[in-house]
């Protein structure tokens, strides 16, 4: 096994899900997060996908009981904590604001973007550093908000990279929607669900229930929210946060009208 993998693969930590499950177990231990919190994430995204004619899971509702009874993939993560596997092709057209002015569709403006990773980060296996639960989202968010007129509290809708459900609470903390350790509890009360949640998230179903195209479909859904064409359209979607993965060197952008 080359490089970093020689420290993990021989012990049978073979897959990305095993690596993220390790951080998840520690996160649950430190902050009292539970499988119910992870189910909040999976069920919210599935509800959005059930409204989306293009979603792989359009016709597959998911209940909390089904979530709890699902087979393990890597404890504490079960089948429904994982994204889908999808072959897909998507495109975005990026042009100047001036050229976009007379295009047939209303544009989504790139308001702010950033990339980031913390010191001594090990992609996917961030448990060798001093503070493993403070991942790249924190570094990325600092630059993203520094360059933005919007603050987390101004963001009415988000598309957050969801290869695995625990990346949502970790990202909510990293991008400043709540304090550290509060990301799991943030998901309670339907907070991520359209239309009434405080932050409708992954409104097309995300990687877990629309399609897993490595997060690209999250960008398209962000554009739809800004244009007003989402199947789970948020009222007054003045801005949308779109993030890449937590736990790896990452990036994020804020789209606006």
């Amino acid at each position: 096994m080359p490089g970093a993998w020689q420290w993990t693969r021989p012990a049978g930590m073979l897959r990305p899900v095993d690596e993220i499950a390790m951080l998840t177990r520690r996160y649950m231990h430190e902050y009292g997060a539970t499988r119910d919190h992870l189910a909040n994430v999976a069920l919210a995204f599935r509800k959005h996908a059930n409204r989306n004619p293009d979603a792989m899971m359009r016709d597959r509702p998911l209940t909390r009981d089904e979530y709890m009874a699902a087979r393990w993939i890597s404890e504490p993560l079960c089948l429904f904590d994982n994204c889908l596997e999808t072959d897909g092709a998507l495109a975005v057209v990026i042009t100047s604001a001036e050229r976009a002015r007379d295009l047939p569709h209303p544009p989504a403006f790139l308001h702010s973007f950033a990339q980031g990773l913390p010191q001594q980060h090990q992609p996917m296996i961030n448990f060798f550093c001093d503070d493993p639960l403070r991942g790249p989202a924190w570094s990325c968010a600092a630059r993203l908000w520094e360059r933005s007129d919007f603050r987390p509290g101004d963001i009415p809708v988000a598309q957050i990279y969801d290869a695995f459900s625990p990346l949502i609470p970790l990202s909510l903390e990293g991008y400043g929607f709540c304090d550290r350790g509060e990301g799991a509890a943030y998901t309670d009360g339907g907070a991520l669900e359209w239309p009434d949640g405080r932050l409708p998230t992954n409104t097309s179903g995300g990687g877990m229930s629309e399609a897993y195209v490595h997060g690209f479909n999250l960008i398209l859904e962000g554009v739809r929210q800004i244009r007003g064409t989402s199947v789970c359209q948020v009222d007054d979607a003045t801005a949308c946060l779109v993030t890449s993965g937590e736990g790896v060197p990452t990036s994020a952008l804020v789209l606006r009208r």
Binding site: M13, L14, M22, R26, I73, S74, E75, P76
Partner: peptide, 25 residues
């Protein structure tokens, strides 16, 4: 023990043979 996971199949064959097993940090 700082954290641990319990992988279940699908896994590589040599690991499937002993699954579910633990991995610890």
């Amino acid at each position: 023990i700082w954290s641990f996971v319990v992988p279940h199949p699908p896994l590589l064959p040599a690991y499937t043979a002993v699954a579910p097993y633990n991995v610890i940090v």
